[in-house]
Simulated scan of single mutants.
Amino acid sequence: MSRIVAVEDAIGETRVALADNGRIVELHIERWSEAGLRARAGALYLGRIRTIDARLNAAFVDLGVGEAGFLPFGRAGRPAGLHEGAALPVRVTREAHAGKGPTLAREEGEYSGSAPRLIEDAAPLAERVSARFQDAEARWADEVRIDIAEAIDEALSREVAIPGGGRLIIEPTAALTAIDVDLAGRTGQGGAERIAADLNRSAAREAARQIRLRGLGGVIAIDFVHMQGRKDRLGVEQVLKAAVKHDPARIDIAPISPFGIVELARQRTGRSLAELLNGADGQPSDETLALNAIRRLESEGRSDRRRQLTLKVAPAIAAWLEAEPIAWREALTERIGPRFAVQTVDTWSRDRFDVSSK
């Protein structure tokens, strides 16, 4: 198995995973609830310049949706004739994240009509991911052995197993993401120094995968198990550099310290998976939990096509479903028929749900 772009078109969201030799290395999700509310990467807008900031050598451009976009002028500086209030075509090169607006690039061409407005929307998510990997084969997730839900759970977990033994402990903070390499009872041939070096090389490869899988950006510090030998430290650094070579984001890696700590800076390409799926408290959002419940309801409906189904959920999730921020009832009716109901269980925790039939 080489590279596969697996697509899962669920109610409420589209999930796309890039798998390399059977292991998922990238995850991308687009939600129905954000359609028309966020500027997608690749979309073309006729924007209107809101502010020009000479100190930043850039302009902030109103797109008519979401936060104002950031348009850097580059080395050539501010183009002649460009002023506040002017309309100009721009393409989104990076989506908004962490309270910052999208990054834009100026486009050539003449466009009439009101501004700001959308001229050309981004291509579907699966096409955008596939376009970056010319050798990847696009497949529906249920046609291949690719478990996107399991990969999402892994990408949101604090601890991840290292192949061969050991674990990574991944802790995002406001300033950086810290990744600690833990021996966790790993054994092997040779002395402690040999075991540490073998663990750290495996950890470097898995850390590179987790960084890419989670969509992490900014400064990342990896604390490897201590190695006394400089040759071993440099060997781990080289393994890490080789492991991030195929990452589409730009990554700069600082030399490993005598204490076995490597700092790297990864280009932000958008929101991390956790920023998309979790709330401000770091827990899955009501929308995430509601869509998980709908997915289970649809799965049960497809496996049993005759019985009436009841989805039992906690009050907060029932409120989200009742508000219908997306037309999920209509979409689910088209897929399994109008044979389902939602029941609230007041005593249940927010993340608990169940589907029963009769």
Rank of each mutant, 00 (worst) to 15 (best):
residue 19 A to L: 09
residue 331 A to Q: 14
residue 239 V to I: 07
residue 309 L to C: 09
residue 235 G to Y: 01
residue 337 G to I: 08
residue 170 I to E: 03
residue 107 E to S: 13
residue 351 D to L: 07
residue 236 V to W: 00
residue 200 N to F: 02
residue 266 R to A: 06
residue 190 G to C: 14
residue 192 A to S: 15
residue 66 G to N: 06
residue 35 A to M: 10
residue 243 A to T: 01
residue 347 T to L: 13
residue 248 P to L: 01
residue 169 I to M: 11
residue 271 R to P: 10
residue 199 L to W: 00
residue 73 F to Y: 09
residue 336 I to Q: 12
residue 104 L to V: 09
residue 76 A to I: 08
residue 320 W to Q: 04
residue 188 G to K: 12
residue 245 K to R: 15
residue 131 A to D: 07
residue 24 I to H: 05
residue 185 G to E: 07
residue 230 R to Y: 04
residue 251 I to T: 13
residue 203 A to L: 00
residue 184 A to N: 12
residue 98 A to V: 02
residue 98 A to G: 08
residue 185 G to F: 11
residue 313 V to C: 11
residue 191 G to C: 14
residue 69 G to H: 06
residue 40 R to H: 02
residue 331 A to L: 07
residue 48 R to H: 06
residue 258 P to K: 08
residue 20 D to T: 04
residue 64 G to M: 08
residue 328 W to Y: 04
residue 127 E to G: 04
residue 209 R to K: 09
residue 254 A to D: 13
residue 150 E to M: 12
residue 100 K to R: 15
residue 125 L to Q: 03
residue 138 A to I: 14
residue 296 R to L: 15
residue 195 I to R: 14
residue 60 F to H: 11
residue 71 L to G: 05
residue 152 I to N: 02
residue 331 A to I: 00
residue 357 S to N: 10
residue 88 L to D: 05
residue 178 A to C: 12
residue 281 D to N: 15
residue 14 T to W: 01
residue 347 T to M: 11
residue 282 G to P: 04
residue 13 E to G: 00
residue 301 G to I: 06
residue 205 R to D: 00
residue 176 L to K: 06
residue 178 A to N: 09
residue 210 Q to P: 08
residue 50 R to M: 04
residue 63 L to R: 06
residue 23 R to P: 03
residue 244 V to E: 01
residue 357 S to V: 14
residue 69 G to T: 08
residue 107 E to Y: 07
residue 326 I to C: 01
residue 165 G to V: 10
residue 253 I to H: 02
residue 26 E to R: 06
residue 105 A to N: 07
residue 322 E to Y: 09
residue 78 R to H: 13
residue 334 E to N: 14
residue 242 A to V: 10
residue 292 N to E: 13
residue 79 P to S: 08
residue 101 G to S: 05
residue 186 R to A: 12
residue 206 E to A: 09
residue 242 A to Y: 05
residue 57 N to D: 13
residue 139 R to I: 04
residue 131 A to E: 11
residue 110 E to I: 14
residue 67 E to H: 12
residue 151 A to G: 01
residue 184 A to V: 06
residue 186 R to T: 12
residue 104 L to E: 05
residue 285 S to L: 08
residue 29 I to R: 00
residue 236 V to Q: 00
residue 225 V to E: 11
residue 169 I to E: 03
residue 292 N to F: 01
residue 97 H to L: 02
residue 260 G to E: 00
residue 301 G to D: 00
residue 52 I to T: 05
residue 93 T to M: 15
residue 228 Q to N: 14
residue 234 L to E: 13
residue 349 S to V: 13
residue 327 A to P: 08
residue 235 G to E: 09
residue 141 A to L: 01
residue 114 S to Q: 15
residue 269 T to L: 14
residue 291 L to N: 03
residue 354 D to L: 14
residue 80 A to V: 14
residue 28 H to S: 07
residue 257 S to P: 10
residue 85 G to I: 13
residue 32 W to Q: 13
residue 65 V to S: 13
residue 121 D to V: 00
residue 137 E to P: 03
residue 18 L to H: 00
residue 196 A to H: 08
residue 328 W to P: 05
residue 271 R to I: 00
residue 51 T to I: 08
residue 251 I to P: 07
residue 9 D to K: 15
residue 123 A to D: 13
residue 355 V to P: 14
residue 328 W to R: 03
residue 253 I to S: 04
residue 270 G to I: 04
residue 217 G to R: 05
residue 54 A to T: 14
residue 287 E to K: 02
residue 217 G to N: 06
residue 116 P to L: 11
residue 99 G to Y: 03
residue 38 R to E: 06
residue 298 E to P: 09
residue 19 A to P: 05
